[in-house]
Each structure stands twice: as structure tokens, then as C-alpha cells.
């Protein structure tokens, strides 16, 4: 791969905190190598801002390997930028060319308030998991792992759902700010495994109730979430979430009257 250097114009959202209004700030950055990752380009910008005694741009990031789910930029009109199945930290500057203007915004969702600049508060996802995204098994209660064979296909499908990194790109991409891909992935994973069966009914109902409470929108099947998901989580998970909800709400007799 040939390397090249480029000069870019960045339009970056700046917002002091959740109480203030934000605005765009334009930066020119030069000598950006095509080998850099997108966040390394931001590192370069921030180094310069520090040297100019200005506040660097705040953004969430941690593992920089595309697995922790911390990074969360809306780059050039798409969550995590132009590459498919790629987190912001794995997006490389090869995706851009000399002279490009890149617009960078935070995730925008009522349920993800902006903390500062490009950082948002995604604790709503934690609260949805608290509502039911678990198997109630205390430590020490488990039986031998091989006592319950699981159809390989189902185990693989459960894994595909479980691969969600909780970054929130699905919410950011969805025109309705819906979290149904995130919720669907967790509900599906546990619904497909026998371990999740005892709480199957309560799990989906509680998680959906919490999802609504957080202010996320509803799915209108545009499937933008799947297209933008850095882990390629399938919208089949949303169908399964719907299925689980209908099953729990219409077929189950469990619960209080």
C-alpha cells in the first residue's frame, strides 16, 4: 500500500458540558499520514491544541482495537465513519484524501446526552442490561459445562449476537434513535441458549420497558443500524426481539395480573 500525506479541514463539534449549547469549530491539520488511525489524527490535533494552550477535543476511546466500544464519533454523516464494520479507532486515514473536509459530531440521541465535545453518556445501555440482560446464576451454582449440549448452530448464532460491543452506533445511525439492535442482540443471545430460558419472559419485557423509559425511539426497519454496526450485528436480532416480546406478552401466563 502506498503511503501519502494529506492536509485536511476538520469541522468538530465543541460543547463545554451537557448544560451548554455546542458549536462547530474548524481546524486545519497538515501532514497527516495515510497510515494513521482516525484517532491518531485527533491525537495530532490535540497535541497541537495543547501546544497552543487550548483545550484539546474530548472524545471517548480506550482499547483502540475495535472491541471495547468506547469510541463514538459521527464522522462525515455516518457513525464510525465511511468504512463498513469498523469502529472509529480502526478507521484509518487511507479512507480520506488530501484536501478533504471532515465533519465530526457526537452521537445524537436524547438517551445519550453530550458530556463534552464528542463524548456522550451511554449509561442508558447499562440500565437496560440491569433490567434483565443477565442469567440469574450466583457464583458456585453452575453445573458441569458439558452437562447441557447446545446445538452448534445456535451457539454460533448466540455468539454472533453476543459480539455487540455496546458502542451505540445503532442508536446514532437510526433515524429514530432506536436501541432495538442493542436490546435485540442481548435478548436474542440469551433466548437462543438454554441457560437463558428460565427468565426468557421477564427479561424481554423488563428490558423493553427500560428501553422505552430511557427515551430511545422505535424500529422502523430501515436497517441503518445493521449497515453501520461495527460488528455487523444482524437485524434478525430485532425480529427476534419482536418475537420474544410478542411471545412473552401474548402467550405467556407468567407474571402478576
Amino acid at each position: 500500500m502506498e503511503h501519502y500525506n494529506m492536509n485536511l479541514t476538520l469541522k468538530v463539534w465543541r460543547q463545554k458540558n451537557s448544560d451548554t449549547k455546542g458549536h462547530f469549530e474548524t481546524f486545519k491539520v497538515g501532514d497527516i499520514s495515510s497510515e494513521m488511525s482516525f484517532l491518531e489524527m485527533f491525537d495530532v490535533l490535540n497535541e497541537r491544541l495543547v501546544s497552543e494552550n487550548k483545550e484539546p477535543v474530548a472524545f471517548d476511546h480506550d482499547c483502540r482495537e475495535g472491541i471495547c466500544g468506547a469510541c463514538s464519533m459521527y464522522i462525515d454523516g455516518e457513525p464510525h465513519g465511511p468504512w463498513a464494520k469498523t469502529t472509529t479507532c480502526q478507521l484509518h486515514m487511507r479512507a480520506f484524501k488530501d484536501g478533504d473536509t471532515i465533519v465530526v459530531e457526537p452521537w445524537r440521541s436524547k438517551a445519550f446526552p453530550v458530556i463534552k465535545d464528542l463524548m456522550v453518556d451511554r449509561s442508558a445501555f447499562d440500565r437496560i442490561i440491569q433490567a434483565g440482560g443477565f442469567v440469574s446464576v450466583n457464583t458456585g451454582n453452575a453445573v458441569d459445562a458439558n452437562s447441557l449440549p447446545i446445538v452448534r448452530y445456535k451457539a454460533e448464532e448466540a455468539f454472533n449476537s453476543a459480539a455487540c460491543i455496546g458502542c451505540g452506533a445503532c442508536v446514532a445511525a437510526c433515524k429514530n434513535g432506536s436501541a432495538m439492535l442493542f436490546v435485540g442482540a442481548k435478548v436474542s443471545q440469551l433466548a437462543m441458549l438454554p441457560q437463558g430460558d428460565p427468565e426468557r419472559t421477564t427479561r424481554v419485557l423488563n428490558m423493553v420497558a427500560q428501553m422505552d423509559k430511557e427515551g430511545f425511539g422505535n424500529c422502523s426497519n430501515t436497517y441503518a443500524c445493521e449497515a453501520e454496526c461495527p460488528k455487523g450485528i444482524s437485524v434478525a436480532n430485532i425480529a427476534r426481539l419482536n418475537h420474544e416480546y410478542l411471545r412473552a406478552g401474548l402467550c405467556s401466563e407468567e407474571g402478576d395480573l
Partner: peptide, 20 residues
């Protein structure tokens, strides 16, 4: 409700890249 879920709109968005 869906509209309320995004009170601040994106300033630059390319939805055609991810949905019909």
C-alpha cells in the same frame, strides 16, 4: 416518540449510505 428521541439533529448526515 421517534422524533423526540433525537432532539438535536445531526448537522451533516448521509443516511443514504446506510439505508434505502
Amino acid at each position: 416518540k421517534n422524533r423526540a428521541a433525537r432532539p438535536v439533529k445531526y448537522h451533516f448526515s448521509q443516511p443514504n449510505k446506510n439505508s434505502k
